[in-house]
Every structure is written in C-alpha cells, then in structure tokens.
Nucleic acid binder design. Structure first.
Length: 494
RNA sequence: GGUCGAGUGACCGAGUGGCUAGGUAGAGGUCUGCAAAACCUUGUACAGCGGUUCGAAUCCGCUCUCGACCUCCA
C-alpha cells in the first residue's frame, strides 16, 4: 500500500493529490549540478531537500526511479565560451578531467550530507546521440531552424501553435514575443530574442565538440535534461524537480523541447526548492556574500563565529520548508546546533533506555496522535519542519520517562517501543541525520570513562568536592561533560 | 521597468478563517553538595491602514519593506 500524498505543483501553483502515472511507481527527475566548479551550498540545500523527498516517497511505499543528471557540457558564458572549457583552461586540464574532478567533489559532498545516490546519474556528454536525435525530432515537427550550422528553437512558432510557453515561470507570452534584450549571445543568428540554442556550432578554439548533421559542435544547455529524462523515465513521467532559479529559462525550455519533439510535456508535477540566503541576501561571490560548505564545516569564514558540522547544517536546513527561502545566520546556526544535539541525545535514550512499563498508559493515545500527525505532515507536501515539531514532542516524552519526570504508568510498554522505534527510524531513515560523535574509539573511551566515574564515585562518597570537581573540570576541558544525577553519574561529549 | 513570492514574538521558523507548532535565547521553578542536563511554568507575535465576516496572522484592497526571476545560476 502506498500513502496518499499531496504535493505542491509549480505548474498549477496549487497542492495536488499525487497520483502516479503507473500505480505504485514514481519517476522523478531532478536537475543536477554543472560540474565546472566546487559545489555551491545552495546546490546542497536543493539536493538535500530532494533526498528527503526521495526517502519519504520510498517510505510511503512507492517504487521510485530517481534520476539526477550531471551536466558536463553546454553552459555558455557571457563571451560564448563553454563553461567546461573555461574551467579547463584555467586549471590547465582536459575538459573531462575538470568534469571528473568536480563530479567527484560533488559526490563527496553528497556523502557528507548523508544523501542516497540517485537510481541513475546520467551525464550530458554520454548522451550526445540522444540529444542529436531530439534536435532532429524538433526540426521534423517544425519547431526549430538551422542557422550557420547551429540549430535554434523557434519560440514564436511554438507559441503561435498554442503551446504553453511561459506557463511554468509565469511569463506572459506577449512580453516574451516583444522582448528586446540586446545583450544575448548569437543574437544576430536567432530569429527572435526568446529563441534558444539546441545545437551550437563550435568555434575553432572550442575544445568540446561532436559531429552532427548540422556542424561540428555541442548541444545547448536545457537539451540534456530533456533527452535524458525521456530516455530513462519516458516521454511522460511523474515528478520533475530543481531549484527555483531554474524555472526560467531552463525548465521552461525543457518543456518546450519535450513538447516540440514528442507533442506533450515531460512531467506531471514540478517541484521547486527555494533559495538559500546568507544574512538576508543572495549568496554572491562578487560582493563577498558567500560561504562554501568547507568554510562552514571549518569555521573559516567572516560570516560565522565557529565551525558547524555537516549534520548541524543539514538539521538547520530541515527547520525550514523546502519551498521557503532560508536565511543562514550565525545565530540561527547556533540555535540549530543545540537543537540537533538535544535530538541526538534523545535518540541515544530511545536506543538504549529500557524502562519497566505497564501494558497501557494514559499517554498512549497522545503518543499515537503525535506519530500520526508526523505522517500527516509529511504527506502534506513534505512538511519536514512541522514533522520535526512532532519529533520534539516525542523527545519530551522520552526524556521525561527516562528522567522520571513522567510516572512510568503514564506510558504503556507498546507505546514506548513504538515511539522509540518510530523516532529512530524517522530521524535516521527519512531525515537521514546521524550522530557525528560515534567514533571508532567509542568503546575504549567508554571503558575509560567507566573507570574514572567509578573512582570519582569513591571520592564523592568521601565528600572530597575539590578533587571531584577537579576531575569534572579537567574532563570538560577534554570535551567530556559529567552529569551527576540521582541514579549515578553520566557523561557525554559536550 | 516586468513577473512571481514573502513580511510571524529576542533570533530562526511552521501555521490559510475560530482549537493560536517546534527549536534557540530570556525569566521563574523541580531535581542536585554545586554545576550541567532533563522536566514544568512563562513572555509583548502575526509590517501598516482599510474592508469582508459573528469571528482573520489566515480572505480582499491599498501602502511600505524585502527577496527571487527576467542574463550563468540549485
């Protein structure tokens, strides 16, 4: 059985019931990175968001094929130079070497953020044949024209035939048709400013080039996503995702290419993640308002006061809905760090604590309501922040039982077990957060700590507080915090 | 200039007509040799002005502010 979800469709600007094209199965395509540079933190937010969406869809019982591409050709710079070859010249590397390097870096970062690999991760350069075929199809249907060896999409024709160009991004067709920007490359070659390149004839110095019926050249940006989504998910699939800023022109053009080549739009539902801001402003390298993942993890940035671990950053991202803009500030990160640690501590208790409880308790119904509520929040357009509030309610109950603030007869044994396994499963499997303090030397340290605590217990029985406090303070210096409670002394890494 | 979106308490951030999340910080308390943790209680919140309604943070209008896109961008 699959859960019934409702998801916000950018195309209709409304939440819609998620009805798979094939029952029980979902095809999801997400626009991946262009690998000509180190991965941007904003990229990370998008892919972390879609990772949770992917994981939840699986959890909800769907069989999902998740395709996320690697774009390693096709982006034009202001001067018309391909992004990949630009990177190559700067680094004195072959274009594919550049792609390899940054693809590797991207994968590493995705692993650091603890995301699942997509089912298929196709590369644009590996699908030149499919892209040429699609250009053929678009030409055959009359929605493209050839100019000096390059091929352009004919937007006025497309619009005139009643196709919905501009629907996704809210563009007004008349505006697009009368657009008069003059700073676009190849302006002279294009019949109309809003037309875009499907195939570009390579100049002499352009390194990335392939044979085609029209010229030795390379595919336009946009095209690889149309070609690869069609190849792996079919002409018609369920979900297409990406960052908000890709709506126009990238996704709009993708739709045009698909409609132009096969007569209908690629995806049923379009999901867009919102932007990550830094101190209320868009991240931008030129004005210094930017922070990279490594800077965030090391604390080497003027924008933050200390280092924040990857899981803290991920937790921080999850406190906001994927469709809302999220503002990174040092204060917000600090708050997230404390919340994250609290959650990890509760998870530890859920895993280890085994209280003696009656068969049923007064709180059982309440616990069930919280759990049901978390599912409902996730079913409602993946409302992770709302679900998280439920997780913290459970956390309160778990901590109360453990510390004896809540009488044990309040919670039934089954409820306790269900609550603990639910919270562990949800945090580990859906949010995919993990405790970063679990080192391999955990056993050794554990043994040492048992010994120290035992020795200190004797000292404390003799009420030698000076010695006892000295041990506690010294351990604190090492990053270990002692907590003297009724049932004895506990410790954790602070 | 055009298009779209947003303005929630000290900070972050959910919430779309009555039931007024959650995290962090603050205050008070329980516990404790002390401390920390944990738990309990608590706060002046819905940009402004009008309007619709028995009732609005939530709907409508105007104003102000901010952001994104319009050009490579997750």
């Amino acid at each position: 059985m699959t859960r019934k979800l409702s998801i916000y469709n950018s195309l209709s600007r409304e939440k819609e019931a998620l009805v798979p094209i094939t029952e029980g199965r979902l095809g999801m395509y997400v626009c991946g990175p262009t690998v000509y540079n180190d991965v941007h933190l904003g990229n990370c937010r998008t892919f972390v968001s879609f990772d949770i969406i992917y994981r939840y869809l699986l959890k909800a019982g769907y069989k999902v094929r998740y395709v996320r591409n690697i774009t390693d050709v096709g982006h034009l710079l202001d001067d018309g130079e391909d992004r990949m070859s630009k990177g190559a010249r700067l680094d004195q590397l072959e274009p594919m070497e550049v792609a390899q390097k940054y693809t590797h870096g991207f994968h590493e970062m995705m692993q650091i953020f603890n995301t699942l690999s997509p089912s298929i991760e196709p590369r644009a350069t590996g699908h030149i044949i499919e892209q040429i075929k699609m250009v053929h199809d678009i030409l055959d249907r009359g929605y493209a024209y050839i100019k000096n060896g390059s091929v352009y999409f004919d937007t006025p024709k497309f619009i005139k035939d009643g196709h919905p160009y501009g629907k996704l991004s809210g563009r007004i067709v008349e505006d697009l048709l009368t657009e008069t920007r003059d700073n676009l490359k190849n302006q002279d070659e294009k019949n109309h400013p809003s037309d875009f390149a499907l195939w570009i004839k390579a100049t002499e110095e352009h390194i990335m080039r392939w044979e085609s019926p029209w010229s030795v050249g390379f595919p336009g940006w946009h095209l690889e996503c149309s070609a690869m989504s069609t190849k792996y998910l079919g002409e018609n699939f369920d979900i297409h995702g990406g960052g908000n800023d890709l709506k126009f022109p990238h996704h709009e053009n993708e739709i045009a290419q698909n409609v132009g080549s096969c007569g209908h739009a690629p995806a049923k539902y379009w999901l867009h993640t919102n932007m990550l801001l830094l101190n209320g402003k868009k991240m931008s390298k030129s004005d210094g308002n930017t922070i990279s993942p490594p800077e965030l993890f090391s604390g080497q940035s003027e924008h933050i006061s200390k280092a924040y671990s990857p899981m803290v950053v991920k937790f921080f991202m999850m406190q906001a809905h994927y469709r809302s803009p999220l503002d990174i500030t040092d204060d917000a990160l600090q708050a997230a760090e404390k919340g994250f640690k609290r959650l990890m501590e509760t998870l530890r208790i859920a895993q280890e604590h085994q209280p003696t409880l009656p068969a049923t308790g007064n709180k059982d119904l309440e616990i069930q309501k919280i759990i049901d509520g978390i599912w409902a929040n996730m079913d409602d357009d993946f409302n992770v922040p709302n679900a998280l509030s439920g997780i913290f309610e459970l956390s309160g109950i778990i901590n109360s039982i453990k510390d004896g603030h809540l009488k044990s007869e309040e919670v039934g044994d089954n409820s306790w077990k269900e609550m603990c396994s639910f919270i562990l499963d949800f945090v580990h499997q859906v949010m995919a957060l993990k405790n970063e303090n679990e080192e391999s030397d955990v056993k050794t340290v554990g043994g040492l700590m048992d010994l120290i605590i035992d020795l200190r217990k004797d000292i404390r029985e003799k009420k030698d507080w000076a010695a006892s406090d000295k041990i506690r303070d010294a351990l604190l210096e090492l990053g270990i915090q002692l907590k003297d409670g009724k049932a004895g002394t506990e410790w954790n890494r602070s």
